[in-house]
Design a protein around this nucleic acid. Sequence first.
DNA 1: AACGAAACCTGCGCGC
DNA 2: TGCGCGCAGGTTTCGT
Length: 268
Amino acid sequence: MPELPEVETVRKALEKNIIGHRVIDVDIILPKIVKSNELKEKLINHTFTQIKRRGKWLLIMLDNGILLSHLRMEGKYYYKPSNEEILKHEHVIIYLDNNMSLRYVDTRQFGLMHWFDTIEDVDLYLSERLGNEPWDIKVTDLYHKIHKRTVPIKNILLDQKLVSGIGNIYADEILFISKISPLRPANQITIKELTKLVNSSSEVLQKAIELGGTTIRNFESEMGQTGHYQNKLLVHTKEGLPCLNCNNRIVKIKVGGRGTYYCPDCQK
DNA sequence: AACGAAACCTGCGCGC
DNA sequence: TGCGCGCAGGTTTCGT
């Protein structure tokens, strides 16, 4: 599930469901997901206060600290009655004071959770991993960081340290809208083009947030994770279909190891 | 420092 | 039917 708009959708759903509720028990079924040994003890008898998000990270705040959660490729949160049976791939279960439970589900087991006692500790941890979100990017700063890089520009968009929140689907969409090839070496991108990329990034992510994110490949819907942006996709998943600008075929290639869709005629 | 590839996992669809 | 391969919305780590 997880680029910025999808994580934001989860954030809102968590906010709606668990704020004000107290944890009465925690079941860590797959310990490798949880990177902090004391997570269970820290959660029990404490109350959710607010849910924040930085890039693709969820900050699930309690009255005594922060559960920092990353969904990676397929992590999801389910909110369901406590007495329902534990299903395969439900790896962490947090039982609440209202006979409901928050369940972390993750088929590929890539996601992870940390515990931090203070927001300062979270900020320190994330500052080593995250750059600004697109709407907070200063184009000249970003240009300075990438103008000597030789990697394809798509790799830059996917580098969370440079711009946070963009993933494989939205990177393709952003590049298409900007009419820039995903393969263009970063050091050939002009200030003007970078401005277009940053602006398009903001627009695409914000529009996707409005629509509740993107749901493709028949992912299950839980906790508001089914969005509608998939109906707005212009290139991603469109291999062989006519480009909406020029009618030539969208092609699928590999860039930075990721499946990449683009129009070789419109995107230069 | 920067880059590409591999690693971490499970499940699905496809071709033989 | 069964098997092997490639692929999947991400990030970290390991070799050059």
